[in-house]
Design a protein around this nucleic acid. Structure first.
Ligand code: FES
Ligand code: FES
Lengths: 132, 132
DNA sequence: CGTCAAGTAACAATTCCGGTTGCGAATATC
DNA sequence: GATATTCGCAACCGGAATTGTTACTTGACG
């Protein structure tokens, strides 16, 4: 349901980087490769940097590089770094007095949490070094 | 203004209806109960009608009613009737020549499909008669 | 025939997201 | 030190999607 190209961009870039981990790439290079804008690249990759997946350096010969060996970065790491559940969360409780609404919310939320856990488990089984 | 308030509205209404299945409710009643607009209600419930979950009748003493006993309507029925996956689908393939993108897409899509199946399975285990 | 309610189309308001521009901060090269 | 390069960040624009609203048509009931 989510219309989000951020995960695609992040995975694509990391998958590319995994093929030559020592090379430094600028946001302009990455943007051209991915068909988007350097600022968008920095927005997305910035979250991966804060999560410790990437390092960024400014100035001449600066750019982006993997912060860890590619076989130590799983798809779940990327998913969690972006902090945007692909699983829709239920709306918050509006009518706390009604048992129907309460039971529904609890039920659906519980299912969603299980599903999200399961998704992360599945994503954690693959590293970006395996997707080339 | 939450994205995806349709499922909430649908489940809330059906849960309410399950408590007194024979009573006929107008979209105006339902809208007031749910804090929204009658047209919105008809939009959402119309999908459930097309899926065979609800019956609607026009004119005097018309309105909405469950088409089946509440214990025969599962949360999965509602979810599928609305046809809006809570699970994000991967973007389309843009670079068919690149093995990295292709492998990524296949991997993530496969995980997502499994997760969606699992979600429907979980939702199918609960009927709207059980959430009161 | 008159009333009520669903069905539907059209439009406005809101939100979300990617794209874009601009500028400041940091760092390498000269 | 001056200059060029690159990230960081804030602000804004434009398109897409969703919800709310108005208005009208269709059909059923008394
Ligand atoms: S890694 Fe980008 S198109 Fe192949
Ligand atoms: S508030 Fe609607 S069924 Fe309780």
């Amino acid at each position: 349901m989510k219309r989000n190209s951020r995960l695609s961009l992040a995975l694509h870039t990391l998958g590319h980087m995994a093929g030559d981990p020592d090379r430094m790439r600028t946001s302009a290079d990455i943007a051209e490769h991915a068909g988007t804008n350097p600022v968008v690249v920095r927005r997305v990759l910035g979250r991966l940097r804060k999560a410790g997946l990437l390092d960024a350096e400014k100035g001449h010969s600066g750019g982006w590089r993997l912060a860890r060996p590619p076989q130590d970065i799983t798809l779940a790491d990327v998913y969690l770094a972006l902090d945007e559940s692909l699983i829709a969360t239920m709306a918050e409780e509006d009518a706390p007095n009604c048992s129907v609404e309460h039971a529904l919310h609890r039920k659906v939320s519980s299912v969603m949490e299980d599903i999200e856990r399961s998704l992360i488990e599945r994503l954690a089984a693959t590293t970006i070094a395996e997707v080339k």
